[in-house]
Design a protein around this nucleic acid. Structure first.
Lengths: 335, 335
DNA sequence: TTGAAAGCGCTAACAC
DNA sequence: GTGTTAGCGCTTTCAA
């Protein structure tokens, strides 16, 4: 086995001390330019790379971040992770990935791993049923910053980054109002989730406010589905009946996929026989023809925002507010 | 700041040496059961967790794996990573994620990070245009095992795990032959990629072999597209003409997505007016109605296989062969 | 401008 | 069955 070159090897060859080598490699101002040059050249020649375990042990700065997500194979977290990984590398951090599978026990295990590895920080999207924040608080007490993103706790002792769900939902509602849709099948996710509650409340309120002032009426058929299959079934049911909706709203990409499958089954023509709008990451709407009009809640932006807050925090700016990533309407041809 | 509990803290409280603590926590046979119990109880009480940087430095075993992928936001690598992360955690390993963005320079930088972090092993899917294997060889010389998956080098000094592309393509071809399709629009990816070449060669050969013995004829329209948009354009072109194909074959999910968009534009009825088959990860075919018949090349299986080879390698079984994950036909209703 | 020395937390050879 | 000790590779204080 070829041995790894260490700072000690370099010091012997150059007749310098290990501290000089260390400083030279870090471009420390005390070291003579000539010395730095010699050190750097030899380091390059011998393929020297610092051992980050050793440095991390010594300085208690591992330059490693962790991200905990409920799942990977969705259509969302991959884009968040991708965006954070890129930013992290730019700033000299590596990214460890931990999947909780929406299981509280695994989530706690993952936090333990973060502690064992002395990560510099953790980005967390809460699992579906996390109630107890104590494990997170304990980690924070050890000076490991936690930034919550997407599914964030209702607690102002943590920095949080999420979407402006209220605004996303009202943007969609306004788009439907503008198109004078009257019978709108409105598909929401599991009602127990706070994201569903926020989106639903704002969505309903937007319609109510409008029809209070306008001398007009419309009907919202609010339904809840927790999978794309369920969404498809609901759509089929509504379009099998007499009073067919003139528009469909989908709260998530998952529901959109189910809806579009039903649209194919029913051979509905979009937007002629029925209009369609969704809240989406932005990927799937482009896979259909006509492309689906959607309110964008982009994983990429959320990732950027989460990472920049992490960086701020690491630099000492420890603000614990919740910040929202903006949502905006993207016109396809479906409404 | 609350200090982290160390083995030294435990040793002082229990009046034992650090080595006894260390051994007790590792369930070393030399240590008395009673001692182990006392140590474990105190450790639990004080929330002791080992510092893996320190252990890694000492033993040169970081219990951390890295995975390098060309991209995350596809429809494939997320499932591979998800599967590997799960297995890795089960076996006490963490997973660091590195994205190369199909950029050779970033790929090399990523290997440097692996070296700096002294990872226990690296799982690599090559970037599109990697030619020089030297950086990988150097890493292997440092006793950091590398398992290539999916896009693997043509070099038998590394363990490799990939799909049996020849078999996947011939399965698809045989399904088309069985349905007596005569005019098949066959969409392949970029011809420069070895995966395209393997799939195309086997696909064509399967048809040729069949029509040598049968007194029958058919026409393959072989086209290459490097994006879903291009695929959609090609499909539209063919169905705008006179001699419309009676089936479409898509080599990847990306091409399938483009094809399905074109199908919606053209309002083609599947499978009545045109049959459809793809080689796919298995996710997208389920999003359409009827569900698309496909040959499955599952990211999940590939991940499992890659991890198990890594584990073998770490346990000393250093075999450098290429192993194939099987492909199998999944019947939807599209052919 | 450079060096000596201590120590981060852990493990393991060796001693008892 | 337990303790002593050295050392993994690095950073950093203090001294020269």
């Amino acid at each position: 086995m070829k041995q790894n070159t260490t700072i000690f090897d370099l010091s012997k060859i150059l007749n310098l001390s290990t501290s000089t080598i260390s400083r030279a490699l870090k471009d420390h101002p005390d070291i003579a330019a000539e010395t730095k040059k010699r050190v750097r050249e030899l380091a390059a020649k011998l393929d020297y790379e610092p051992n980050l375990s050793a440095a991390g042990l010594r300085t208690n700065n591992t330059k490693e971040l962790a991200i905990i997500v409920p799942t990977l194979s969705g259509f969302f977290y991959d884009s968040v992770i991708s965006s954070i990984e890129g930013e992290a590398r730019k700033h000299g951090y590596s990214l460890m990935i931990l999947v909780s599978s929406d299981d509280v026990a695994i989530e706690i295990e993952n936090l333990k791993i973060c502690k064992q590895r002395h990560v510099a920080g953790v980005l967390v999207c809460l699992s579906l049923h996390t109630k107890d924040l104590l494990p997170f608080i304990k980690l924070q007490e050890l000076e490991i910053p936690i930034i919550f993103f997407d599914k964030v706790p209702n607690s102002d002792i943590f920095p949080r980054v999420s979407f402006n769900d209220e605004r996303a939902a009202s943007l969609a509602a306004n788009a439907l109002i503008k198109k004078k849709k009257k019978n709108i099948l409105s598909l929401f996710g599991n009602i127990d989730l706070s994201i569903t509650q926020r989106r639903l409340t704002s969505y309903s309120a937007t319609f109510n406010n409008h029809f209070l002032t306008e001398n007009d009426k419309n009907y919202l058929f609010i339904e809840h589905a927790s999978s794309s299959t369920e969404a498809a079934e609901i759509v089929c049911k509504y379009f099998g009946g007499e009073n067919k909706p003139d528009a469909i709203f989908c709260m998530t990409d998952e529901l959109l996929i189910g809806t579009m499958k039903a649209v194919q089954v029913l051979k509905l023509s979009i937007p002629d026989s029925v209009g369609l709008i969704a809240i989406s990451n932005g990927l799937f709407p482009k896979f259909y023809h006509p492309e689906v009009t959607y309110v964008e809640t982009s994983g990429h932006s959320l990732g950027q925002l989460a990472f920049s807050r992490m960086l701020n925090y690491l630099q000492g700016n420890k603000e614990n507010s919740e910040i929202s990533a903006e949502a905006s309407l993207m016109e396809g041809g479906s409404l």
